[in-house]
């Protein structure tokens, strides 16, 4: 129907974006009726997402003609932005941005570097930037989930943690059950994506590869490659962020800094 109303591709795209956003906002209104207020955050996130992706689309046009090193620069910028975004999920936790940025840089960055050097990811900007951004975005989500879960668990179990400290436990040991739970919970989406690949969902990249003339079997195998890389990058990010954050919630005198009501 929209295709008939909007003959130009740009107009069609904007109309499709409006319809999809309206569906999202309808869900927000349903949530509001149940007393859950997501209006502000969701509206801003949608608007930001649309503006950002249009900006990136425009930049990609320039990048396609730019030297290869600019691809690395673009990924670095994405890592910093990803660190800032996922750090917001760890409100009140000391050094959340720095930890997030380092964890994503190490987790996603090392997998991108390794896979590029082995030839799994092509160094051409048209391949490096989209595939790299997928790894960074998923690492960001995993990091946000890990920090958010860790924060909730520490706040909910401050009594148990301080009891362990009062009995002479090392601070890092007193939070180790919550570090483990955060790590495991943060990887649920990545594991479920791998598990349901091809059955529940077919990633957009595969459709793109097929449209650009790749052989279906190769396109299918590459989907697994991408998801396995996402899992590796996300897992490494979560391992690093949970390892770094566990010491940051304590003072040098092993006092729990993150407490309910503080």
């Amino acid at each position: 129907m929209l295709k008939l109303l909007f003959p130009s591709q740009l107009q069609l795209g904007l109309a499709q974006a409006l319809v999809a956003a309206a569906a999202g906002l309808a869900v927000v209104l349903l949530a509001r009726r149940r007393g859950i207020h997501l209006e502000g955050e969701t509206s801003i996130a949608m608007l930001r997402g649309l503006v950002q992706i249009i900006a990136v689309g425009s930049i990609l046009v320039i990048l396609l003609r730019a030297p290869r090193w600019t691809g690395g620069l673009a990924l670095l910028g994405m890592i910093v932005a990803a660190g800032a975004t996922s750090a917001r999920r760890a409100k009140g936790m000391p050094e959340a941005f720095r930890i997030s940025a380092w964890a994503i840089a190490f987790g996603a960055g090392s997998i991108i570097a390794l896979m590029t050097s082995l030839g799994v990811i092509d160094t051409a900007i048209t391949s490096l930037v989209p595939v790299g951004s997928m790894l960074i975005a998923n690492a960001m989500n995993t990091n946000g989930l890990a920090l958010n879960r860790f924060r909730s668990d520490v706040l909910a179990h401050a009594g148990e943690i301080e009891t362990a400290l009062a009995l002479g436990a090392e601070s890092r040991n007193s939070v180790s059950p919550y570090v483990q739970a955060s790590f495991e919970a943060s990887l649920i989406p990545a594991i479920d994506s791998l598990r349901s690949l091809g059955i529940v969902w077919i990633p957009g990249l595969m459709a793109g590869m097929l449209l650009s003339g790749a052989r279906p079997v190769y396109a299918a195998i590459y989907q697994f490659v991408v998801l396995a890389m996402i899992f590796a990058a996300s897992g490494l990010t979560s391992l690093v962020s949970t390892m770094l954050i566990r010491s940051r919630v304590f003072s040098p005198a092993e006092q729990l800094l993150l407490q309910p009501g503080k």
Binding site: G159, E160, E162, T163, A164, L165, A166, L167, G168, A169, E170, A253, E254, Q255
Partner: peptide, 19 residues
């Protein structure tokens, strides 16, 4: 060290928080 101090001054909290 905080660990040594807390061993010496043993604390019992309002709720027992057993592991």
């Amino acid at each position: 060290s905080p660990r040594e101090l807390r061993r010496k001054l043993g604390m019992v909290t309002q709720r027992p928080y057993l592991f």
